[in-house]
Amino acid sequence: MKSTIIVLISFFFLSCSNDNDDEKTIIYPQTIIPIQILKGNLNYNNIYNQQNVVITNDSDWQTLMSNFSTYGVINGTPFSESNIDFQNYMILFVIEVGSGTTTLDITDIQENTNNIIVTVENLQLGLTTDVTHPFHIVKIAKTNKPIVFQ
């Protein structure tokens, strides 16, 4: 009788599944929804050319905001955030040389197993001859994975 009870109890415990293992499995790619900090055109710029930058500390962030104040932002709004919690977030900053009516847009961010792919596009191409520097600045959750811009 004891052996039957032990077998039944063993069968019960072995038949129970652990759903927590299924919840921890992450299926890639995963879309990351960024928080927009600022988008527009930087005028009279002699610091930034075409580049993609990942900012992970307050010192670099303060330098960027100071440079933007010095050179003036046109066709944009003020920074939506100036105090970034770099323990939990990072900044992605893209800029290029273009005309005043060209936009630079971070259109997609995908997290893969080994990296994060950031897609950057010009959703609007300008036809004017004036030269400005369209840019886009977003915030995402901090990660140790490499950031790849395309």
Rank of each mutant, 00 (worst) to 15 (best):
S15D: 04
S69Q: 15
I47Q: 07
F93C: 13
V54I: 02
Y44S: 07
I33M: 05
I84V: 12
T119M: 09
K39W: 06
N49A: 12
T128E: 14
Y71T: 11
N20V: 12
T77V: 01
L127M: 10
N46V: 00
D22C: 10
G40C: 01
S69K: 14
T63W: 04
K24F: 00
L42S: 00
T103A: 03
L92G: 02
F79I: 00
Q62R: 09
D85V: 09
F11W: 08
I95L: 09
S3T: 14
T107V: 06
Q110R: 05
G76P: 03
T63C: 03
N122F: 07
I35K: 13
I109L: 02
I74T: 12
L125M: 11
N18Y: 07
C16P: 05
D19K: 10
V94S: 15
V97A: 12
N75E: 07
T101V: 09
T63P: 02
N88L: 11
S3N: 12
F68D: 13
D19I: 14
L38E: 07
I5E: 04
Q36C: 06
Y44I: 06
Q30E: 09
I33C: 00
V53E: 07
V53T: 10
E121T: 13
S59W: 05
T101Q: 07
I33F: 04
L14T: 08
L14A: 08
P34Y: 02
I95Y: 07
D130L: 12
V7S: 14
N115W: 12
Y89G: 05
Q87L: 14
I33N: 05
Y89P: 03
F11N: 14
T101K: 06
L64P: 04
Q30V: 11
I55W: 02
V94E: 08
T119P: 01
I55H: 00
F12L: 15
D108P: 01
L38D: 05
I26H: 03
Q51L: 14
N52H: 11
Q62E: 10
I35V: 13
N46E: 00
Q110S: 08
T101G: 07
E23S: 13
D21L: 15
S80Y: 08
F93S: 13
D58W: 09
I37K: 04
I106G: 03
F93Q: 11
Y71I: 07
N88W: 05
T70I: 14
S80A: 14
N49K: 12
Q36K: 11
I109A: 02
G76N: 00
I35M: 10
E96Q: 15
T31M: 11
D58Y: 11
V54E: 01
T101P: 04
E81S: 09
L127Y: 10
T56G: 01
S66V: 14
D85R: 09
L38A: 13
I106Y: 02
V53K: 10
Y28W: 09
G72C: 09
W61R: 00
Y44P: 04
I106F: 01
N83T: 09
L8I: 12
